[in-house]
Design a protein around this nucleic acid. Structure first.
Lengths: 336, 336
DNA sequence: GAGCTGATTGACAGCGCTGGCAATTCCACT
DNA sequence: AGTGGAATTGCCAGCGCTGTCAATCAGCTC
C-alpha cells in the first residue's frame, strides 16, 4: 500500500520505519510522504512477530496509589520517545502463585523489559523468574540490590540527614523517629540518615522515641501517642512518610499542643496530604516521575544490543529535594 | 511443539486455547496436559496478527493520580479474566495534536477498545477519532453522554442529596457549597444534589455561600475564607471534593473555630486525606475500582460480536457510599 | 453392514512485517 | 567506455498463530 504509492518495495518502507541506514535521502522522503498521505501506522503485532520483539515494557506494581500513577506517567513518556509501550500489571506481592503469574505475563507478552516497583523489587520469585527468562529488569528502590540487575534509587539517607540537621539547627535535641515498614529500603535509609545527623551533632537517640509505623496513618497515630506520652516529650517528630506525619499532627492537636511551636513535625515523600493540613509539612520530595523515566530509559538503553547490562551495573541515585514548610519551629530557650 | 506432544494438529491446540467448542473432552485434556507440562504460553502478537485482534484495551487518562491507579487496577482485574491486557496512555487534554496522538495509538496497537477517563471523556477530538476508527470506547463520568457510546457513571446527585440531608437532619440551615471545576459532570451533579436537598427541606441557598473552588486545595482555602467571613457565617460547608474540604478545615482552624462543633464540613471522594486530618471528613466514597472493572467489562462484552453497542446504550450508574465521620456535629440550639 | 448425519480434526494459506541475502544501481577511477 | 566496490533496493521465506474448508470419524438407522 504505502510501498506502491512510494514506488518501492515493502522492505524499503520497513527500513524507513525502523530508521535503518542505507536508504537514499530521496527515497526516504518519498516513503515518508506516502506514509503521511495514507496516515499509515505499522502494525505492532506484525512488527513484533517478524522481528522477534514486542515493543512492550512491563511495569509491575503491588498496591495502587499516587506513586504508581506518577511513576508510570514518567515511564510512558520515555517509552514514547522510542516507540515502545508500557504494560501495567498489578501483582499481589503475597500471592503464592506470583511466580506463575509473572511467567504467564512474560510468556504471552514477550516483554522487552520489566520495571519492578517496591515491594516487588525485593521478591526473589519475581527476580528469578525474570532472570530465567532472560528478561532485563530494573529494580526500583530495592532493599537488596541484585547483583545482576540495575536499580534506580533515591538518596534517602542524605535527605533524611539534611532534614534532621535542619531540625537540630532549629534547636531540637529530643527528636523522635517513626520508622516505616520493616524490609523497605526507604525505612532503613531514612533512619540511617536521621541517625547520621544525630550522631554528627553528638545527640543521642532515645530508644523510646523510635517507633515503627509501617508507613500507615493509623499506625502513625499510635506511634505518635506513645511518643508524646513518654516521660520526656520530644520537641520534634521525624516521620518516615507524610501519612504518618499527618497522624502525628492529629495526635498533637488532640493533645492540645500548639503546632508548630510546641512540636515540630516533618515527613517524607511530599505526598498530597503534606500541603493539605495545617501546618503544612516540611518534607522531602521524591522525583517520582523522573524515576519512571529513568527506569524506562535503562531498559531501552539495554535493549537494542541484547547483551548483558553494561558494567559496572548502572545504579543511578536521584537527588531528593528538601521542602521546608511551616511544620518546623525553632525551640524556645526554655524548651531546649 | 505442544501439538506434537499431545499428538494433535496445531489447529486443535489453538481451539483449546481459545476455548472453542467442538473439541472432544479427552483431546482437550490431552492438550491441556501438554500445555501444562511444557509451560506453554501462546504468543500474543502471533495470535493477534492471525486473528485480526490485539487482546489490548487502552486506558487513556490525563492527569496521574490516586484515582487513575485505582481505576486501572480494577480494569486490569477484569481484563485478566478474559486474557486481555491494559495499555495505559497518558494524554494531554489540552494538546493541539491530541487527535494525531490518539490515531497513532490505535493505529499501532489496534486496540480492541478504549476507556476514557475525564476530562478526556468529554473531548470531541478523542471521541471522533475513536469513532471514525470504529473502536469501541467507554466514557467515564462524561459531562455529555455521547449518543453512540456507553458511559459509566456514579450517582453523584443522589449521594450529594443524601449527604446534604444528613447535615440538615443535624440541624444545619445555613450551608455553604464549594463548587468544583466548571465543565465537570461531578461539579454539576453534586451541586444539583445539594440543591435538591435544600429545596426539599424548604431551605434557601445563599448565593454568597456558593463559591467555585475548581477541586483544588488552594482554591478551597480562598473559598472557605470568603464563606466564613461572610456576615452570617454558615454552620456547615459542603465541599465538592475532599481536597477542598481539607482546605476548609485548615481555614476554620486558623480562625480558631472549634471543629466540628462550630462548623461541620463534608467532602466528596473519600480521598486519602479524608482520614488523615482531624476531624475526619464525612464524605462519599466512590467505587473507583469497581468502575474500572465495569468499564473493562463493557468493552469486553461488546467485543466478541463486533457489532454495535447493545440497545439501549448501556449507562450503568454505580452506587456511592456515604461515609459519616467526625466532621459533622449537630447544631446547638443557639446556633440554629 | 451400508448409508447418513453431525461431531471432530487437520491441511493450508496467510495475517503484516522483517531477516538474510542476492540483485541492481551508482559512482569514482582507469 | 570499462571496471570494481560500495551503496541501495528488492526478493523470498517465515515469525506463530487462526480462518476456512475439506477430510475423517463416531453413532445411528434400516
Amino acid at each position: 500500500m504505502v510501498a506502491d504509492r512510494a514506488g518501492v518495495s515493502p522492505k524499503t518502507v520497513s527500513r524507513v520505519i525502523n530508521n535503518e541506514r542505507g536508504v537514499r535521502a530521496e527515497t526516504h522522503a518519498r516513503v515518508m510522504a506516502a506514509i503521511e498521505q495514507l496516515d499509515y501506522h505499522p502494525n505492532l503485532a506484525a512488527r513484533g512477530l517478524a522481528g522477534a520483539r514486542s515493543f512492550l515494557i512491563g511495569l509491575f506494581y503491588d498496591k495502587p496509589g499516587d506513586y504508581v500513577s506518577e511513576f508510570q506517567t514518567g515511564a510512558v513518556q520515555r517509552c514514547r520517545e522510542s516507540n515502545l509501550h508500557l504494560m501495567v500489571e498489578p501483582l499481589e506481592a503475597g500471592s503464592p502463585d506470583l511466580g506463575r503469574a509473572v511467567s504467564t505475563l512474560i510468556g504471552q507478552l514477550r516483554l522487552e523489559g520489566v520495571i519492578l516497583l517496591p515491594p516487588l523489587s525485593d521478591l526473589p520469585v519475581v527476580h528469578t523468574t525474570l532472570a530465567t527468562a532472560g528478561i532485563p529488569a530494573v529494580h526500583i528502590a530495592p532493599m537488596h540490590q541484585p547483583a545482576d540487575a540495575p536499580s534506580v534509587d533515591t538518596d534517602d539517607r542524605t535527605a533524611a540527614r539534611q532534614l534532621t540537621a535542619e531540625l537540630i539547627r532549629c534547636g531540637h535535641r529530643r527528636i523522635a523517629f517513626m520508622l516505616g515498614r520493616a524490609g523497605h529500603r526507604a525505612t532503613e535509609q531514612r533512619y540511617l540518615g536521621f541517625a547520621d545527623a544525630m550522631q554528627a551533632s553528638g545527640l543521642s537517640i532515645d530508644a523510646q522515641l523510635v517507633q515503627t509505623g509501617n508507613f500507615e496513618f493509623t499506625d502513625g497515630l499510635e506511634c505518635a501517642r506513645r511518643m508524646l506520652l513518654s516521660p520526656q516529650r520530644p520537641s520534634a517528630i521525624f516521620a518516615s512518610n507524610d501519612d504518618m506525619a499527618a497522624a502525628a499532627v492529629c495526635v498533637a492537636r488532640q493533645m492540645q499542643l500548639a503546632l508548630p511551636d510546641a512540636l515540630s513535625i516533618v515527613g517524607f515523600d511530599d505526598a498530597p496530604v503534606a500541603t493539605m493540613i495545617w501546618p503544612q509539612l516540611s518534607t522531602v520530595r521524591q522525583p517520582v516521575r523522573a524515576m519512571g523515566r529513568l527506569a524506562a530509559d535503562l531498559i531501552i538503553q539495554h535493549e537494542p544490543h541484547r547483551r548483558g547490562w553494561p558494567q559496572p551495573m548502572p545504579r543511578p541515585h536521584l537527588e531528593l529535594e528538601l521542602i521546608l514548610r511551616g511544620s518546623i519551629a525553632s525551640v524556645r530557650a526554655h524548651n531546649a
